[in-house]
Amino acid sequence: MIHAEDVVKSFGTHTALDGVTLRVPRGTVLGLLGHNGAGKTTLINVLTTVLPPDGGTASVAGFDVVAEGAQVRSSIGLTGQYTLVDEDLTGRQNLVMIARLLGLSSRDARRHAAELLESFGLVDAADRKAGKFSGGMKRRLDLAVSLVGRPHVVFLDEPTTGLDPTSRIALWETVERLTREEGTTVLLTTQYMEEADRLADAITVLSHGRVVASGTAGELKAGLGRRTVTITPSDPALASEVLSRNGFEVGRELDAVHVPVSATREVAVVVRLLTDADVDLAALTVTEPSLDDVYLALAAQPRGVLQ
């Protein structure tokens, strides 16, 4: 549904997108992960026809973003990093206006607006000016507005940035419902690994305008993140010494010792080494790598690690 091939976009001497290729199959959610300035919003702008690419090609819902911009715009919805609603209009007026612009009759537009207000929990606030909405409500209205035309493809550009945890979870549930019930294709950008982990079928990591990794969350973790064994030994100093001597990286934190391991059997090796050295273990935990670990590992490496 979304297909970008070697997309390049520069602003003056700054290259915002340096040959980005990605593909989002119909009905799936792609999480686009990256820090500020990685090129996420620029890519969204190109895919939503707001900015023309300098090089490469991109199509959305089967339409070329340059040659068939109008058709692309008829097929998409966008919830931006900054809310794209008219703050001088009420929530209802915003929805009706967009519905009318998308070709609904006045009566259908009002009915559709009422449905959306209902399903986004905005009925009570419907006739207040959007400018007076709280951050979470504004974002919900923004999402509702972007779904007015029942778009095939929805772009969510950092949809939960600046939201409190409750609003964030509510928005996640809405996105999940959308993909489950409507089969909508979603491209989601985020700085939060947790968000990508929860919502995305596949993840692409963008750094300095390039794709540095892509795969499922599991693949990324397996390929890059290492598990960590955390132990609480009777003698932390001795434990650290024994493990370092045997080639393990060791981190100490009060009574705890952290040992990154790359394979499951190394957990057994750690335990055996410590038993042989007569070190008792009060506790032992093995933690899976988080996407944060993956991201940090990638940030430290040149491109092409996992492609």
Binding site: R73, E87, I98
Partner: peptide, 13 residues
Amino acid sequence: KNGVLARFRTLPV
């Protein structure tokens, strides 16, 4: 300056 114009750019308007 109003966000709504940014939205119009993404709509068939």
